[in-house]
Design a protein around this nucleic acid. Structure first.
Length: 707
RNA sequence: GCCAGUUUAGCUCAGCGGUAGAGCAACGGUUUUGUAAACCGUCGGUCGCCGGUUCAAUCCCGGCAACUGGCUCCA
């Protein structure tokens, strides 16, 4: 990150300099604050929250004068301050910390800005004065020293002082501590200093602050509403999915019948849309040999994120050949040693290899030849080993590449669009698992488009248009396209070392985005290792930000697999590949939809679309209702019957709680008139209507995927 | 993976150094009903797992696991 941003705020900023118009003000993407000028653009509320962080530090120092502070910025819904303190602050401490904060606010101290020289700042940090109430001999402000080091030469250095508390800070602040109308500490967490895993872990105290109590109460009411919409809670209530970590494993979701209904509706939508867009469907296994991921280049980059391989025992003949190689290798190395060659070979731990090593081999005649032979043996041994290793696939692309390779391809076959709802497995770190949003087994709305450079722009544009079409269906208006490019520094490490291709493809993507008038932000150094990409970020109704879809260029991996097509000029050329997943994964997309709709799905997605209930269970009523159920079921409607003798109020309450989309009540009056009484979840009783009309409308609404 | 917190019946949650309780759900009856709960009864728990302290542990201590909130990460 830019060093100037680190004066006080070493962590991540959660407000942007250039908010995209389709975003709500408090839903801007997180972007590092680049300059002091940017900082002056802090909103009034952000200043207030930032000031409250200083008040928090003041209070903590009153209780624990030895505390060392690092960074205390405003964040999306409040603020935090990172600190180092032997005492572990727990929520039980909040009350007394808040009491001290109230005193500081009541004292109504001025936030005084003081500009100092670097020498002065270094001296104050050394004495422990910075981020303290007084000088603290023997307890220098170590993190402030670290922050000072990040301030570029020539940039002004400023303090802010409220009462006794003096902090290195670029500001800005509110005028007085008394301007903080309402605040509350919310939780403790831990964070690495400057966000770097290698740095010490600090305690992070989070809080929120508002101009007044009313606004704060509205915020907490909103939080309560958000908890009700949480996909984990709704998922359980509605019987959508289960996470059985004991028997199945953490992050491995089980789709219950209700959730599967949604999942299959999404697949149906994707299949229809992709069919219309000229995709063909394929189906591939969930695992592949190690060679696949060595070739694709994924293994060196992503081995940590893959489940470890399963290792198959070798067949008899293979084993014999393998052991012969090991013996031979040992002997060869022994011979090389006898010839005085001290090669640094990879150690092999095998009895036969050792037996070879210990054999008294005559010195080799030609060391260069012997080394060549050694290299060949080592490679062959590696291949034998690799042959029996299978990995669960973390991505579908290599399998699709092999489908491409399964037949000779002509330029006439391109673009070739291979689509699959592929199941991938990723070994996400345990702490990163999160309901359905971050899982270890995922069903991806995947496809790979193989095309020529000339076709690329059109294909890429079509993919982006498909995204927009989907977003419209789901009434998704808040999203942000994020264009991720490479960094020169990462070439050969994080990114394949093809600088010309990077620039070429990045230009192509940028042009498509500009020409389609798509609103996007460009971020450097976040591309995939094989090419630039566009991620689509959405904000769930709860305000959680997620990458829901992705559209990536791949100019590297097809070549690694030797994929070619025969062009007009009768030469073989390598196709470009577009990886795209507009609906992301079922897990994340449905998790998102649950929160988006608060569990109140439109008819076409609702797990239980219709429930037919009778008032009483007398035979003619049940016959009439049964016929209705059969008719709906014949129309592929997910319908259930409740013909029990419970009171109609009770039946309705049950159906409402289950969020059944459409409730059809049938009593003797309806029977006589050939009607059904219609009720919709969230809309109440809509009155009696002719049966045929209601059925036709239900079928039409499902077919049209009406919102 | 790291820091902190949490884990009691299918769900939501009480409770306590002397091996447990409510509501809802489930199940069995009774009830024949007009748009968000009719009534009665029954069942249900190795108090996350393993170990320690104690005459006695669900409760105190330690380890592990899972979950939650963050951090780091996210092809």
């Amino acid at each position: 990150m830019d060093a100037s941003a680190s004066i006080l705020f070493s962590g991540r900023f959660s407000f942007a300099a250039n908010p995209a118009p389709n975003l709500m003000p408090n839903e801007e993407p997180s972007v590092d604050r680049k300059t002091l000028d940017d900082r002056q653009k802090m909103t009034e509320l952000e200043r207030l929250r930032h000031s409250c962080a200083h008040v928090l530090a003041t209070a903590i120092l009153r209780l624990w004068p030895e505390a060392q502070f690092a960074a205390g910025p405003p964040v999306e819904n409040g603020f935090y301050y990172d600190l180092d303190l032997a005492h572990r602050i727990s929520p039980e401490d909040f009350e007394k910390i808040e009491a001290e904060m109230k005193k500081e606010i009541k004292a109504n101290h001025v936030f005084e800005r003081i500009v100092v020289t670097r020498e002065q700042a270094l001296a104050d940090a050394a004495s422990g004065r910075l981020g303290g109430l007084a000088e603290r001999p023997g307890n220098p402000s170590q993190f402030k020293l670290g922050n000072l080091a990040d301030i570029p030469a020539g940039e002004p250095i400023s303090y802010y002082r409220n009462g006794d508390f003096l902090d290195l800070c670029a500001g800005p602040h509110v005028m007085r501590t008394g301007n903080i109308g309402a605040f509350k500490l919310t939780h403790v967490a831990s964070a690495y200093y400057k966000g770097d895993e290698k740095n010490p872990q600090l305690q992070r105290i989070y809080g929120t602050a508002f101009k007044n109590k009313t606004e704060m109460e509205a915020y907490f009411t909103m939080i309560e509403e958000a908890k009700r919409r949480d996909h984990r809670k709704l998922g359980q209530e509605m019987g959508l999915f289960a996470l059985d970590s004991e028997y199945v494993g953490p992050g491995l979701a089980l789709w219950l019948p209700n959730g599967t209904a949604i999942l299959e509706e999404l697949e149906k939508l994707a299949k229809e849309t992709e069919f219309a867009a000229g995709y063909v469907r394929v189906k591939t296994p969930h695992l592949a040999r190690e060679k696949m991921y060595k070739t694709s280049g994924h293994l060196p980059y992503y081995a940590d994120s893959m489940f470890p391989p399963m290792i198959l025992p070798m067949e008899n003949e293979d084993r014999k050949n393998f052991e012969k190689l090991l013996l031979k290798q040992g002997q060869l190395r022994s011979g090389l040693a006898a010839a005085g060659h001290q090669g640094a070979f990879e150690a092999e731990d095998h009895p036969l290899h050792r037996q070879g090593l210990e054999s008294a081999q005559p010195a080799v005649a030609d060391v260069a030849d012997a080394l060549k032979e050694e290299e060949r043996l080592a490679k062959a041994i590696g291949e034998f080993r690799s042959h029996g290793r299978y990995y669960l696939k973390a991505m579908n692309c290599p399998h699709h590449h092999r489908i491409y390779a399964a037949e000779p391809r002509s330029y006439r076959d391109l673009p070739l669009r291979l689509a699959e709802y592929g199941t991938c497995y990723r070994y996400e770190q345990s702490g990163e698992l999160f309901g359905l949003m971050r899982v270890r087994a995922l069903n991806m709305n995947d496809a790979h488009i193989y095309c020529t450079a000339e076709q690329f722009a059109e294909e890429f544009r079509a993919v982006n248009e498909m995204y927009l079409k989907y977003f419209q269906i789901f009434g998704l208006s808040k999203y942000q396209m994020r264009f991720s490019t490479h960094s020169a520094a990462g070439l050969g490490k994080k990114y394949v070392n093809e600088p010309a291709l990077w620039h070429q493809t990045e230009d192509m993507v940028r042009r498509v985005l500009v020409e389609s008038g798509i609103n996007y932000v460009e971020v450097a150094n976040e591309a995939a290792f094989y090419g630039p990409k566009i991620d689509v970020q959405v904000w769930s109704a709860i305000g959680r930000e997620f990458t829901i879809a992705t559209n990536q260029v791949d100019f590297a991996v097809p070549a690694k697999f030797g994929l070619t097509y025969r062009d007009r000029d009768n030469t073989d050329k390598t196709p470009l590949c577009i990886h795209r997943a507009p609906l992301g994964t079922h897990e994340r997309f449905i998790g998102f939809l649950i929160e988006h709709y608060a569990g109140n799905f439109p008819l076409w997605l609702a797990p239980e679309q219709v429930r037919v209930m009778t008032i009483g269970d007398e035979a003619p009523l049940v016959d009439y209702a049964s016929a209705l159920v059969r008719e709906l079921r014949a129309g592929q409607v997910r319908v259930k019957a409740d013909f029990s003798t419970n009171k109609i109020n009770g039946k309705i309450q049950e159906a409402e709680k289950a969020r059944v989309h459409t409730m059809l009540v049938i009593g003797s009056r309806d029977l006589e008139a050939g009607n059904v009484s219609l009720r919709r979840h969230g809309h109440g009783n809509l009155g009696a209507k002719p049966r045929a009309e209601v059925v036709a409308d239900i079928l039409a609404a499902i077919h049209e995927r009406r919102a």
